[in-house]
Write a protein that binds this DNA or RNA. Sequence first.
DNA 1: AAAATAGTGTCTATGAGACACTATAGT
DNA 2: ACTATAGTGTCTCATAGACACTATTTT
Lengths: 256, 256
Amino acid sequence: MAARKRQSRNKASDGGERAFLAAYDASAFPHPSVAVDVALVTIVEGALRAVLVRREEHPAKGAWALPGGFVGMDESLDAAAARVLATKVGVEGVFVEQLYTFGAVKRDPRTRVIAVAYYALVHPGLLERAPLNGNTVLAELAVPWRGESGGDVGAVRPEGGRLKLAFDHAAMLGLVVLRLRGKLDYAPIGFELLPRHFTLRQLQEVHETILGKRLNKDSFRRRMLASGRIRATGRREADVGHRPAALYRFARRTKR
Amino acid sequence: MAARKRQSRNKASDGGERAFLAAYDASAFPHPSVAVDVALVTIVEGALRAVLVRREEHPAKGAWALPGGFVGMDESLDAAAARVLATKVGVEGVFVEQLYTFGAVKRDPRTRVIAVAYYALVHPGLLERAPLNGNTVLAELAVPWRGESGGDVGAVRPEGGRLKLAFDHAAMLGLVVLRLRGKLDYAPIGFELLPRHFTLRQLQEVHETILGKRLNKDSFRRRMLASGRIRATGRREADVGHRPAALYRFARRTKR
DNA sequence: AAAATAGTGTCTATGAGACACTATAGT
DNA sequence: ACTATAGTGTCTCATAGACACTATTTT
């Protein structure tokens, strides 16, 4: 396919199938750019946070954006998302899932850019080596709606101060929260935000943070223990100033 | 990083924003093609069906594909999906929702094509004027898995005979079924597949078809009546050979 | 011993499934 | 009158929420 592109650039071409295939030459008519934007989400101090990068160039210069990049011609979308995480945030091997594709014509003023949004979940301990300097911040998410209403989600500096979000990234973050809330009960989302061993209390706090509401302790314990998705490690937490809780780990298989 | 490409094209250039914007010239480096593929789904005789079109050209010539088309430079993704439905199937104003974006490098052998998959729901009565000739068929979906396992979904001619699906369209249809099953209880999906007025029995049959399993009649009635999403019209069905059922209609607002 | 949270047992409210029964159309 | 399905009433079972109580660690 790449070989055929040469023909239209060096306008040598004839009839038959070769001509047909040349019609699909990528440069024969204009194509949109395709980018991936990845919301790398974690939980710190009982609040959802996401990595944002300040834009140093036009458009939306000075605004804050999700880490992103253009999709290479020989790179799958999933691979592009993983590359963005690895090169821009220094994170690898974490949970990543495609979210939604944003394709409004004017979403990027410079040219047509179709953005495939992804989200990734990570335990905050894994972000310690991430380059959180002046250009990159682990912003706290401000969700101005309850339940599964949906809508834009804002970003605030941990020490305070609202961040202006670039393009449609407030909508992307809104969809991330909506997706997390929707899938929390069905998919192993909570575990991705915790260290390998965790207590039921920690897991409940993660669920409460994602859902934005308090949960019943007794019912939560029963549901989790009955779900078959967690397994006791036999160990307990230490140095906690009260009765130590049992430590659990995520069990890959849902045994039914 | 893309800023460096500017010299390759418009070599007349100065500092400042103009030069910067020129760097994003769409033809400065190769872009993938972006297409939309739309699964137009309906229910006939207790089975899910989708419109498929036979490919008359390479690649995958002779195989059956979802109606699709390339996204125009001045056309949003949603608009492209609506255009495909209108021009290729003659259907307008129906429920359409984005599903997933398929971006494997080799999914289309001719060149790089990223496909944004959509699904649409329609009552079969609306397809009567659709061009269902030799090139277009309303294929029955064959779901080889239960529940929410997921996986490829096949297509069968209504009169029998398996259809070979082009590209990754079996995976797209699989995701459609998975999405329908997942959203059935939360979103107004069932109503889109029924005429304006319907009986509870018809609604239950739609749910059973989507879920691929039988439902409890009593519980289904109670759930639907308590959901606040349907409203009695006061009318009843006629000419049914037994006690006629009350007709309901979809109530837009969920009153809680 | 005091403080603090972990963990258990039990009661209640709610909703799904099951079943029996009554209602009402066409034939 | 018969048939077939609509629609109602009630019982049971499973699960979530609420509450009371016991257990176990650090200070």
